Simulated scan of single mutants.
Amino acid sequence: MLTLDRKTETRNVADAQLAAGGGRIVELDGDADWREAEAEIAGAVRVDIRFPKFNDGRGFSLATQLRERAGYTGKLRAVGDLIPDQAQHLIRVGFDDVDPDRKGLEADWARARTRFAHAYQPGRGNVTPLFRHRHKRPEDDLAALNARYRDMTPQDILRDAIRNEWVGKVAIMSSFGAEAAVGLHMIAQIDPATPVIFLDTGRLFAQTEQYQRQLTEQLGLSNIRLLKPDAEEVASEDSDDRLWRRDPDACCALRKVRPLDEIIGDYDALITGRKRFHGGGRMSLPVVERINGRIRVNPLANWDAAAIEDYFQRFDLPRHPLTDMGYASIGCWTCTAPVQADGDIRSGRWLGQSKTECGIHTPAQVAAE
């Protein structure tokens, strides 16, 4: 057993109880549901969380939930296939010590402990435990999330995001476009009450509106957040309905970016359906990123067109009516065209222009002072 932090009052009491042969120890697998574990850990002086493989990050999520959601202040021990490089994250989510299966690395663990001295402690007065800042992650934690999700399936990423990492503070954005049914079906299998943000720009195809109603009913989605542009702003900025032609960036800002900005503060993380095979700036898309200070989760980033097609067929999902007419990526009717034979999947968007994104997935441009 290797200690991760300095002795705290809570740990001293727990150690004394255990040394005297008293106190209860609870063992949990990393994939345990924290809600079910809450009653089991009540009164326990130590909880051991098992990591079956070093790249299985579910134990980190469970530790965070036990600390933050269940309010557990006793000792947490990480047990299993762990490596010293994980010391920082173990400390950050609230572990006190670690019992790794891999032996002979004591010196490496000691160096890691020295490098990452901050540890979880129950708050006293105005002191805030470090783990409570988990949604304001520095870049190293963003990298840790990407490493953790790297070998997970999209379903497992979504399950972790919804049930563990951002419980009650995560939503999925959906255009109800050509590929939308895949991600929405996955969400429906996990929690159909997950908020689905749908931007009705006032310029959508009638077929998209029909498809949105069809998918919502068929998948049992129960929490659609319909966003529309402000009517007064539309009347002022697009009185002739030609803004899309004069200034497409301004039109997207009016009808998509600003409506989303109104509610984005309700969530710590937003899920998208973007994928690397879409090309352009999406070719280097990470699974987890931060845009304008907010986390974006892209569980399908690694999937290609064949994987999407396979999922549609496997679950017999309905298709967007316009896909049979050559529309591969579907937005507003004013700025969407069928894809030509030699075009990539998004080549029908803003045809003939350099514009490739609407703006909801790109960092805000801040003018230089």
Rank of each mutant, 00 (worst) to 15 (best):
G71P: 11
K53E: 15
L76N: 04
W34V: 01
K53A: 14
G59L: 06
E36W: 08
R67L: 08
H89Q: 10
R67G: 05
I91N: 06
W34Y: 14
F60S: 03
A78W: 11
R50W: 02
R92V: 08
R77G: 04
G74K: 00
V79Y: 02
E38A: 11
G43S: 05
I91A: 10
D48I: 07
E38G: 03
D56K: 03
D56G: 01
D81V: 06
I91C: 12
T64D: 11
L66C: 05
S61R: 06
L76K: 07
F51I: 04
V93L: 13
F51V: 02
F95M: 06
L76C: 07
G43E: 07
E68W: 12
P84V: 04
A70W: 13
R35P: 00
R46C: 12
L90W: 11
G94P: 06
T73F: 03
A63M: 09
A70I: 10
A44E: 06
D81N: 13
D81P: 08
I83L: 15
Q86L: 11
Q88S: 11
G71K: 10
G74V: 07
H89M: 14
P84C: 02
P84G: 06
P52W: 05
Y72P: 01
A78V: 11
R77S: 08
A37W: 00
T73Q: 11
E38T: 09
R69P: 00
D56M: 01
G43Y: 10
N55I: 08
N55P: 03
I91K: 09
T64Y: 14
L90I: 09
G94R: 02
R46L: 08
A70T: 15
R69Q: 15
Q88E: 14
N55C: 01
I49C: 01
A37P: 04
T64H: 15
F51N: 09
A70H: 14
R46A: 05
K53D: 15
F95D: 01
G71T: 11
R77Y: 03
G94T: 04
G57P: 06
E68Q: 13
D33Q: 01
W34D: 02
I41W: 01
I49E: 00
I91L: 13
I49Y: 00
I91R: 04
G80F: 00
L62E: 09
P52E: 08
